[in-house]
Design a protein around this nucleic acid. Sequence first.
DNA 1: CTGAAAGCGCTTACAG
DNA 2: CTGAAAGCGCTTACAG
Lengths: 341, 341
Amino acid sequence: MTPNNPARRRRPTIHDVAREAGVSRGTVSRVLNGGHYVSPAAAEAVNAAIRKTGYVVNRHARSLITGRSGSAAFLLTEPQEKFFEDPNFNVLLRGCTQALAAHDIPLLLMIAGSREEQRRLTRYIAAGHVDGVLLISSHTGDPVAEELVRAGIPVVMCGKPMGRTRLAHVAADDRDGARQMVGHLVAAGRRRIGTVTGPLDTSGGVDRLAGYREVLAEAGLPVEDDLIVTADYSREGGAAATARLLDRRPDLDALFVASDLMAQGALGVLERAGRRVPEDVAVGGFDDSTAALSSRPALTTVRQPWDRISTEMVRVLLSQIDGDATSAVILPTELVPRDSA
Amino acid sequence: MTPNNPARRRRPTIHDVAREAGVSRGTVSRVLNGGHYVSPAAAEAVNAAIRKTGYVVNRHARSLITGRSGSAAFLLTEPQEKFFEDPNFNVLLRGCTQALAAHDIPLLLMIAGSREEQRRLTRYIAAGHVDGVLLISSHTGDPVAEELVRAGIPVVMCGKPMGRTRLAHVAADDRDGARQMVGHLVAAGRRRIGTVTGPLDTSGGVDRLAGYREVLAEAGLPVEDDLIVTADYSREGGAAATARLLDRRPDLDALFVASDLMAQGALGVLERAGRRVPEDVAVGGFDDSTAALSSRPALTTVRQPWDRISTEMVRVLLSQIDGDATSAVILPTELVPRDSA
DNA sequence: CTGAAAGCGCTTACAG
DNA sequence: CTGAAAGCGCTTACAG
């Protein structure tokens, strides 16, 4: 197959560089790979030849022999809409892309919405097309993580995995974040505090609910089931859950919503129900995403350190690719007081 | 360099498949590449052997000989924050990823915020590491597009390019969208219609402004300079521009804002200024992004067909990779009436 | 329709 | 420190 575009002329190879520098291809390769066992003079000549020829290594040839692809995957294993509407997602994706770019490792974006796509991509990855996977999936029963680990592919999850698998992961301290927020509501004198949780097959959903329960109990407040509704992290889900909660407990004086996006939905419902925020009902979110700032009133929330999460995910992945054991990192969260609570 | 992970055992090669099927490697390769010039019996045997061995082609080896990488890049050449906070961006990225996945082509995400990163990535791409580039960059004077084209790399831009380069691109009909929106405002009886434009070194900024001017002129309304302010597509920029506009023209009765995100900022400023929307000031946005629905009141806006834009970008890119000439596609926009105008 | 063979561009023991 | 050589896993004319 010849190049279709005439402008796409033959690219210089290591052979051109070697000839230009007056050394062997082996020596050029050694310079390319760290310059060990190369005399300063030879290295100098090679570098000059590289500049002159505009040589760039052919990664395919390199990968063929090293068995490394030099790339990593950012793999989503859930119905993708959810992620792409979530402002956190962007920050994470951007952070990971840039942290890897610093190591000259391109990031492949992969979306496995259906079981079939999961199978296709698992196969693709297991075939060695990427050196490691940043896995974005929080639900239990996602078989992808286990399949990849079994295939020997380094994997780092975003968020605490639910299953028993000992999986490398980086997560924010959900439980403590929830504790801070609910503690803040209690300290403000709220007594009938409801919560809209995330899905309870995600550790974020479970841990934030746990923090809520703990603080209420410690404050001597009853933990009542009809103050707890579960939703799906979406704006619409948060709205519906809030409507239900309001219906069951019109006496509600505060609401801890497990994501900013859901809290946005809650705000809309409260407004339509004629409740003032924070006067009648204080509302606390979670994430400190862009949604928190665009809400009216601006959302009091819990900050997840997304920049650090992405940096750490990349660090853990790279060290795993280098043969280190898997590891887990839990990063602190922080209360961000604004206007809604 | 030996594999660090013991679970990462030797993967089957074309040789294993050939032996298993009792044919030569050439025949296996022919089956892999379309099955031309292969007897049904041989093809059958090879496919069975592939299933049995779990063979997956080694793309590096294939790329080394075909000169094709089998991947494409999604390249951002602007300060990335802007994109990642823009809800449109997600839809576009997701759409392109999926459209390419249907062709089994992985998408590499690349962010070139600084001139230095642009240079690094241009070099990387020009070295043949991807077969084509989906370029997201609207500003004039972005040298990346030209550099890539000169290197013979297929490129498709999102949005109309400003320069004189004849560049393949896919864009929405900005001018007509603006015409529809401003026509809607005029038809509703508004007479002092301001506009917050996008950057005037982007075709979106220029064309939406052109549509605004045209409709006012056609309606016999004066086009006054103090009704026009330029901003940067961000929420904060939209807010600041609106404040300025309100200051200059307190008699404003409508506002055409060139993006939903900026319109969100405008809404906040109008609210704080005590103007009711749409009673006192009608507000129209542009994009029909998720920001339009989360705004209060829900934003009347112009829908950009993001799904089709991404599909078309991929289609145009692939046909260019296959050697076809560059082409341009302009997709229709559509007014979406909601509550704000 | 099929096999044997050359070769894509690199890295890495192996000798020296 | 350096060169010659083997080989990574594929595809593709070339003969038959």
